[in-house]
Design a protein around this nucleic acid. Structure first.
Lengths: 370, 370
DNA sequence: ATGAAAGCGCTAACAA
DNA sequence: TTGTTAGCGCTTTCAT
């Protein structure tokens, strides 16, 4: 019963039938082995595995997807407007890059694949769009990134279509999904305390983009830290940014123009922190000698800026890995059912580099070469 | 004959049968309309389109892939070692990011999807790995990035498996594939000439990574420009880098230590240029006042460095778009056959920013505030 | 110009 | 413990 493979010039992909034939078992048994199902004797399993190895066989995703309902595919939805803006200015997008790559690596371990899709929450036809995208891709899970992870309509839609999904967001949701976040408030407080510990009492704050829940939480942490250390909150030390480099520059400029300017600035993301540093040096201020700056996110650029940026690490890699892990787990055990409502908080960490030091007129009489 | 959709609580994805029923045609006709095949009367087409819109129907990728052989998927192969190194140090990878995103956007336009796969050309089982990956994904096309786009074994394997593929590489290949590149030599010469035009005669060069064909070509362009302007090539002005920030620093240090150091440095990529700038300021040299630095690639970081980096733009976006376009075109017309051997050169452009200016002791007596 | 029937390569019931 | 038989939702022949 041996089917001689046509020795064509170009190698053809083997099918499950060829593996079954070579191992002298039925295709179902091959399927069992490949999917780790029980009820296969070790000996048979060995034969099948050997045949698989010899043929270099790998089940075709489309066939599996069609027959089994599982696509072995996860999809990340990114906010279309935001992403395209980034793209057009030619800026890199570390959040997406890290998330995507971490997710991809985790997917690989399970034979999964990760796709990226852009989603415009303001389009009049989001519903249709989501439905048809889910239908076309039939993903085993969806990862929602900010700010669409905070969009109630999107969340409701995903729930309605019964898609298992994980939200990367600091705000909880009652929807049937996994919400992954870091403790934004505590992290922001720790960042602020780092500055206070250094001796700073006039600590400026640059807030983030409206539309991002994280922004308000980071501000909340900043204020909590101040209060906890008995430092009065000063409205003049707060400036509104938008999570961009330019916004950071503008916000810093306002702060630095004050008659009694801050000796340290906590920018609620790295890009703005870099903008603040830029603005400081533009005004002849040396960082950190004259002004300490701490960021938030600890994105790649933080380590290569001048000076290297002290920052609060957002564990985006870990979040991506966790999202993927849980989604795949869910697909494997719940057969496509929605995720049970759940929440996961991933630990953050302060990364001290060279952009923070005690204030100029502080107790520490540290001299810097003028 | 109307099948009433079960008004279940969770919306279910419609199939081609439902569309056909609603439009009163056979599923084959629906298929024709969806795939733009001929022999459909306008009226019928309208009916079908209306039904599709009403149902929010989108053909399921896996079904299409299984039945038609086309997967509507393209895959990019990245060098595994290189990519993982980048990843681990927490560096961003603009080349991949831009390529990936540009490709993804182009894919979207055609209903395609772009996947990323890591490929280790040194693994003893690359062949198996490639074969099984191609079998599993059944991509309509493959995009090869440097340095694996220059790996003869990989190229041969892809050709053997009959996969249509596009190489992003400066070196030609006789293989059945599309080779996309920029004119590295001309671009490097132009970058060098920019410096010479500014009045520099002692122009240093930092070469790139061994294993990248681009490196040798850029050096070639540098030497050609020198020769073209009657400037003698000086071995002492050449330093070996490795396309990394650190490598750029080290290479610049060697150049700057010379008794008669260069007044300008052409680093053969942006990362090294940034490293060179870093090294220069570490030695108390102001860029560009004391030392002009020009990069190559024009990656995002170039515009945000201090000072903003003058660089030769590598049109990586355009290359990605072109690769995707041609691969999809091929899939649509050649039904999975390999690409005809072809070559495409994408135009480059010099982007002048603030890291280059005339040399200190040049004709231009420009004063900078000390 | 349109439709009927036959798979694509798997997984999922259901037998044995 | 294993194999048989249906489909999954499409695209292809090949009729008509």
């Amino acid at each position: 019963m041996k089917t001689v493979a046509p020795a064509s010039e170009t190698t053809r992909a083997p099918t499950i039938y060829e593996v079954a034939a070579k191992a002298n078992v039925s295709i179902k048994t091959v399927s069992r082995v490949l999917n780790g199902e029980p009820n296969v004797r070790p000996g048979v399993q060995q034969r099948v595995l050997a045949a698989v190895a010899e043929l270099g066989y790998r089940p075709k995703m489309s066939a599996r997807g069609l027959a089994g309902g599982r696509s072995y595919t996860l999809v990340t939805f990114l906010d279309e407007g935001l992403t395209m803006d980034h793209w057009r200015i030619g800026r890199s997008n570390p959040y997406v890059e890290r998330l995507q790559f971490a997710g991809m690596l985790q997917c690989r371990k399970a034979g999964y694949h990760l796709l990226v899709e852009l989603l415009d929450p303001n389009s009049p036809r989001v519903e249709q769009w989501i439905q048809s995208t889910l239908a076309a891709l039939n993903p085993d899970g969806v990862i929602l990134t900010p700010p669409i992870s905070e969009d109630q309509k999107i969340i409701a839609l995903l729930e309605q279509f019964n898609a298992p999904f994980a939200r990367l967001s600091a705000v909880p949701s009652k929807a049937a999904c996994l919400t992954i976040s870091m403790d934004e408030v505590a992290a922001a407080a720790e960042a602020t305390n780092h500055l206070i510990d250094l001796g700073h009492t006039r600590v400026g704050f640059i807030s983030g983009g409206p539309g991002f829940a994280s922004s308000a939480l980071r501000e909340q942490g900043y204020r909590a830290a101040l209060e906890g250390r008995g430092i009065a909150f000063d409205k003049k030390l707060m400036s509104i940014g938008d999570y961009t480099f330019e916004g950071g520059k503008r916000a810093a400029a306002i702060l630095l123009k004050e008659k009694n300017p801050p000796t340290a600035i906590f920018a609620s993301n790295d890009e703005m922190a870099l903008g603040a540093i830029h603005e400081a040096s533009r005004r002849g201020l040396a960082v950190p000698r004259d002004l300490s700056v701490i960021g938030f996110d600890d994105f790649p650029a933080a380590q290569y800026s001048i000076p290297p940026l002290t920052s609060m690490r957002q564990p985006i890699d870990d979040m991506g890995v966790l999202a993927v892990k849980r989604l795949i787990e869910n697909a494997a055990t719940q057969r496509g059912a929605a995720m049970p409502q759940d929440r996961a908080v991933v630990p953050h960490a302060l990364v001290v580099r060279a952009s923070t030091c005690p204030p100029p007129r502080s107790a520490t009489p540290r001299k810097t070469k003028a």
